[in-house]
Design a protein around this nucleic acid. Structure first.
Lengths: 233, 233
DNA sequence: CGTCATATTGATGGGCATCAATATATGTGG
DNA sequence: CCACATATATTGATGCCCATCAATATGACG
């Protein structure tokens, strides 16, 4: 029964929606939905590669363990994006671990065993994969840019400005897509620093915060901070 | 006359050397060698994409300009590696700038206009591109790991340990592939800090340095520093 | 309502950038 | 080939940002 659902789900993804229905159907055969609760682990670094994934809802965090046991965040994958394609295409084992960031996270698993033959035989599929790999490259480059900014305020401001925002009765509002501790980890700053920055900006009237809901009051100040790289309110 | 040279040069690259000769010949038609002096610019961020490139000798540094005029280093591309494939495959304009790091840098330019039709028609080529994109993903992930290490000593130690080294009369020696200021930029630390670290490690008998030539005397200490992330000699 | 994770706020110290000055290296023209 | 000019490296002094430790507050959830 989930057969056709799966096919529809696959078609929702930007780089697959141009594929002919017949191909999608064959692709769907090796797929399944995976539902995860907050913090639940999808796969772990070093495991054999079973397939690649697409996020439908919630969010997946890719991370690696360092030799001293800490945990580095590679990227947070949001709905509409895929991950682990490179692992399927050119590695035996997962180079990173993946866990769900929120409850109700749903991903589509595309099984490698079914996918690889199709990939080799149909050039439209390889073109699609090239697109998704390119998207990944782009997002990693953005990540590198983020990390090279070594001032915490600039990193946070830049992050906030790039977040999808909506206009609600004249105010630009946005919602943090993850817990503040996770956001802090992603930005490579201490959670305490994140707290302090938000507080200072509130005191200065740059924004308002209630939980994960933020309202940007003065976008120009934020932009200036993001561009300065050294910054201060 | 460089026709056959070009074909040979293409074949030297890992993900192309399995391609049939006939295909390589057609590919070579749209290629040319580009020779660059130290600091010379190959292309600039925002320019139209002419093609992608492979480094034969020397080194190419990819960098982007930030809004405030500084310059962030994305990656240093060493011989045997390609770059700008993603730009050719899915963008109109170069997302970054490229310049030669040393005199006598030679790259092969693969012209997009000749390449793209071949790419679409021959699935072996798209498989090859998938491999090279995957290599890029891998190297960017390493770069992110590097940058997430926020202690300067750990970043430097890690970098040195990953550098190709040679054993000369019982001593492990290596050569920095670029000027120290460029290395400092790549590691996102101040040149002064780089100097001081090398001095301290020399004083502590961990290594010896003369210009860009380094001899590792105590690899275990370096490894410990690289793994600690906070570090101290 | 109690328990646990997450968030906030305060106090402290260290690492590294920054500024400044000298030394060395690199390269140029006379 | 040497002297000059410029880029790169080293070394020193200073200050600030942010991580860390510690303690309390708030929130989530059974």
């Amino acid at each position: 029964m989930p057969e056709s659902d799966l096919q529809a789900a696959l078609a929702e993804f930007p780089h697959f929606h141009s594929l002919p229905r017949e191909l999608l159907a064959r692709l769907a055969t090796g797929c399944r939905f995976v539902r995860l609760g907050a913090g639940e682990v999808l796969f772990t670094q070093g495991e054999p590669v079973l397939g690649f994934y697409m996020v439908r809802s919630g969010a997946i965090q890719l991370h690696r363990s360092t030799p001293d046991g800490r945990d580095q965040i590679l990227q947070t994958v949001v709905p509409g994006r895929t991950f682990a394609e490179a692992a399927v295409l050119s590695m035996k084992r997962m180079p990173a671990s993946a866990r769900a960031l929120s409850d109700g996270t749903v991903v589509v698993e595309v099984c490698a065993a079914n996918f690889l033959p199709l990939f080799r035989e149909d050039s439209r599929l390889s073109a699609a994969m090239v697109v998704s790999l390119s998207m990944w490259l782009h997002s990693l480059v953005e990540r590198i840019e983020e990390l090279q900014i070594d001032s915490a305020p600039a990193r946070l401001a830049r992050y906030l400005l790039r977040l999808p925002s909506s206009e609600k009765d004249g105010r630009v509002t946005l919602e943090l897509p993850m817990a503040k501790k996770d956001l802090a980890a992603q930005l490579a700053i201490a959670p305490e620093t994140l707290s302090r920055l938000l507080r200072r900006w509130q005191d200065d009237g740059v924004l308002e915060a209630r939980g994960r809901e933020l309202a940007i009051l003065d976008e120009r100040v934020l932009t200036a901070i993001a561009d300065r790289e050294d910054a201060e309110a």
